[in-house]
């Protein structure tokens, strides 16, 4: 394993992390909501893509929107259940309810897809690219392109469009937005549906890199936490950079120190960041 190959791995992994976390970044940054079922929604996205390809024979290009549709439905149902708590901004209860949803999703996935691991092969993941002695697949290229496209589109929508202004207004002051005639409920539902679609897209694009298991959501959510916190909660550009930084860190840590403890090391980074700037983070994130 040479240095250049690890740097390349880090670059791809970093884009993957940023893409996985983008739903949470928007959810937390614009709506001040948290979703502990994020990891399980990633898992469902991966399994839906795998299922429609292996059982229904759909092509990969249709499996991606199918997974996203499942994500939208789950996100919508979750937020519909959470609406009362969201309006009250009862973050602690919202958090536990989303944990409950995660547990349900894992049970439902076990029931539908079984407990054995699967491989999500796509036409892109089977095609290799060699540059000298460096090796990547076309799937890796797709991860980088999709991530950059999603981040640019998101930044444009949030900062330049009416929809973006509406979402930011609701995040800033839900009660004032309500008085101004904004349908706050619909904005919350929309943001949650976006979170579902975004994480399912990430799953359909990123999950082909590793075997998929119905229990994988438990760990997946840590990556999201770290990216969102490192990036400065809610910052779109920040979480892209944080994703990249974390990708390089994980690639090199995994190659030169220990693969098994990569998650633990990532968590160490999180703790250091929190120790350095606990006040600012809590004040902004708590929203009060």
């Amino acid at each position: 394993m040479n240095f250049a190959q690890q740097a390349l791995n880090g670059l791809i992994l970093g884009h993957a992390f940023a893409l996985i976390a983008i739903g949470w970044t928007v959810l937390l940054g614009t709506a001040r909501l948290v979703n502990f079922a994020h990891g399980q929604m990633y898992m469902i996205g991966a399994f839906v893509a795998w299922f429609v390809m292996s059982s229904w024979g759909l092509p990969y290009l249709l499996a991606v929107p199918a997974a996203m549709l499942a994500g939208v439905i789950i996100g919508w149902i979750m937020q519909a259940t959470l609406l009362r708590l969201t309006i009250k901004q009862d973050l602690v209860s919202i958090m536990i309810v989303t944990l409950g949803f995660g547990h349900m999703l894992e049970g439902a996935a076990g029931l539908s897809f079984g407990s054995t691991g699967q491989i999500l092969d796509t036409p892109l993941s089977l095609k290799d690219i060699y540059i000298g002695d460096l090796w990547i697949t076309w799937q890796d290229v797709a991860i980088v392109i999709v991530t950059i496209a999603v981040f640019i589109a998101l930044k444009l929508v949030l900062e330049k469009s009416r929809l973006g202004r509406l979402v930011r207004m609701v995040a800033e002051d839900p009660k004032l937005a309500l008085l101004a005639g904004v349908d706050v409920r619909r904005v919350y539902l929309g943001v949650f549906a976006f979170e579902g679609a975004a994480v399912a897209l990430a799953a359909a694009v990123v999950a082909p890199r590793t075997p998929i298991l119905t229990s994988m959501g438990f760990q997946e959510v840590i990556i999201t936490f770290v990216v969102v916190v490192l990036g400065g909660i809610g910052s779109v550009t920040g979480s892209y950079l944080a994703g990249l930084g974390l990708g390089f860190f994980t690639a090199f840590f995994g190659a030169y120190v220990s693969q098994a403890y990569a998650t633990a090391a990532m968590f160490g980074v999180l703790i250091v960041v929190l120790a350095l700037r606990p006040g600012g983070l809590a004040a902004r994130a708590g929203g009060r």
Partner: peptide, 28 residues
């Protein structure tokens, strides 16, 4: 001590991460 100054969901987030990391450590 690590989570002393963290409140609400940031506290929960970090304590959740503690559990996930503990699991990977215990399994390895």
């Amino acid at each position: 001590l690590v989570t002393l100054r963290l409140r609400e969901f940031v506290f929960s987030l970090v304590t959740y991460a503690v559990t996930v990391v503990a699991m990977t450590v215990a399994a390895n």
